[in-house]
């Protein structure tokens, strides 16, 4: 029987801001690129995100945040994934993130940060090139 390798991505909104237009645009773009996107809704804790990622066995997690709490919440997700032995999952982030915060976030294990204005095709390419299958 032929094997299929559909990429599965969890799109999650950690923290307390209620703006998920961006997350929905990304979810739609990934869907149109042939991926299965699991969208979990607003106001997720890092614990909820990691638990969902493990049960859904996703290849990547896309975190979207506009509240300014990225320096705390993004690294926390990576840390919890490590603790669960699931750090093979690619973590990327997006939202309103100042340039000076990006090096620190990458050092904390976020593979890439996409700020406003990034074409969705770049995000699709990045995921396709970097997920471990």
């Amino acid at each position: 029987m032929t094997q299929t390798n559909t990429i599965r991505v969890l799109v999650a909104k950690p923290g307390l801001d209620g703006h998920d237009r961006g997350a929905k645009v990304i979810a739609r773009a990934l869907r149109d690129a042939g991926m299965e996107v699991i969208y979990t809704g607003l106001r997720q804790t890092p614990e909820q995100i990691v638990e969902a990622a493990i049960q859904e066995d996703v290849d990547a997690i896309g975190l979207s945040i506009l509240s300014g709490a990225h320096n705390f919440l993004f690294p926390k997700v990576v840390e919890l994934l490590k603790k669960e032995g699931a750090d093979d999952i690619l973590v990327i982030g997006g939202g309103v993130i100042p340039d000076e915060d990006i090096p620190g976030l990458k050092e904390a294990g976020i593979a890439e940060i996409f700020t406003p204005g990034t074409p969705t095709s770049r995000i699709v390419e990045f995921i396709k090139e970097n997920v471990k299958h």
Partner: peptide, 17 residues
């Protein structure tokens, strides 16, 4: 496209942990 948007978890957040 073979893609899908799986959104059933949105209504099941209380069960996540």
């Amino acid at each position: 496209t073979g893609g899908a948007l799986l959104g059933d978890r949105i209504r099941m957040q209380e069960l996540a942990l």
